[in-house]
């Protein structure tokens, strides 16, 4: 036998899906399902994930999966939970996986309703910060100063002027047992959080940063690299909350300047092209610094 250990395993999210080259979201989903195991029913709203996994006749899902419409995944999930309860199928759990448009914007009311009802659903938001399925339009999850197709940078525009909605905090305010942020760049951490979430009952929420080579416009081999930079600069803090309290954060050894993260992405290019972007870059650095302070991200601090 070969000295090196080579592990084989069956994927619950198989090849042949039609995600773009280097899709962070597709990668995240495979690992989510590795963490949940096969005894789950997955609900997805309309969006990238739905589009690249649903062409009729070709499903990569090896767990039961349902997509209904755009804004109702949390309610569909509640319906599945209710049916499982009524049928006495307590072992099967329900996981919803939806993008930021569905979660932050159009399905927000349904999400809040599901959280408030206390339904046993793990809701995972795969966040790529815009409506990538329809060409990269602005969402409530788009970070400040990013250029999107509906809020583009231009002669009189520096991109999105509003803040990214702080959804983990809003979700946590519903008093649910588990909230976490994760990144597809840290797969072991991501899986650990999904596994942990599955130990709780009631509504749980994980928001995963899933860099998008097509939408953010960086080379497809850099998906994880960009994801790591986002975490290391403090713009994407990774934390876990149990019952409303932060119980852990991913510490940073060294703070990466936000410009290192931003400069490789076309959605921020306008900030580097003229002096005009300086103040926005400073604001983004200030935002990262605020996160670092708020969540105590520095290892030394």
């Amino acid at each position: 036998m070969c000295a090196a250990k080579v592990e084989t395993r069956e994927s619950l999210f198989v090849s042949g899906h039609r995600a773009c080259h280097g899709c962070g979201l597709a990668l995240a989903v495979r690992h989510i399902l590795e963490a949940t195991g096969p005894n789950v029913i997955v609900v997805s709203p309309t969006g990238c994930l739905e589009t690249f996994t649903s062409p009729y006749g070709y499903s990569p899902w090896r767990v039961p999966w349902i997509h209904h419409v755009f804004e109702n995944a949390p309610a569909v999930a509640s319906g599945v939970v209710a049916a499982l309860k009524a049928q006495g199928r307590p072992v099967t759990r329900v996981v919803a996986i939806g993008g930021d448009g569905a979660t932050f914007d159009i399905g927000f009311g349904a999400l809040s309703g599901m959280l408030e009802r206390g339904d046993d659903v793990l809701y995972i938001c795969t966040d790529n910060g815009a409506y990538m399925n329809t060409g990269g339009q602005r969402s409530g999850a788009t970070p400040s100063w990013a250029s999107t197709t509906t809020h583009p940078a231009g002669k009189q525009s520096v991109g999105k002027t509003e803040r990214k909605k702080d959804l983990p905090e809003i979700v946590a305010a519903h008093g649910i047992p588990y909230v976490a942020t994760a990144s597809v760049a840290y797969l072991r951490d991501l899986k650990k959080k999904v596994k942990k979430a599955m130990t709780f009952h009631g509504p749980r929420y994980i928001q995963i940063d899933t860099p998008c080579p097509s939408g953010w416009n960086f080379p497809s081999h850099l998906t994880l690299e960009v994801g790591r930079q986002a975490v290391k600069c403090g713009l994407v803090p990774l934390f876990e909350m149990e019952n409303g309290k932060i119980i852990g954060v991913r510490k940073l050894k060294k703070k990466l300047p936000v410009t290192e993260y931003l400069q490789g992405q076309k959605r921020y290019r306008h900030l580097f092209e003229s002096d005009g972007g300086q103040s926005e870059l400073q604001k983004l650095q200030a935002e990262a610094d605020k996160n670092i302070e708020k969540y105590g991200l520095m290892e030394s601090g």
Binding site: S15, G16, S59, P60
Partner: peptide
């Protein structure tokens, strides 16, 4: 409604 895992028939 389609069977799960059938995307293996679609080579990318």
């Amino acid at each position: 409604v389609v069977k799960g895992g059938t995307s293996l028939h679609y080579k990318t």
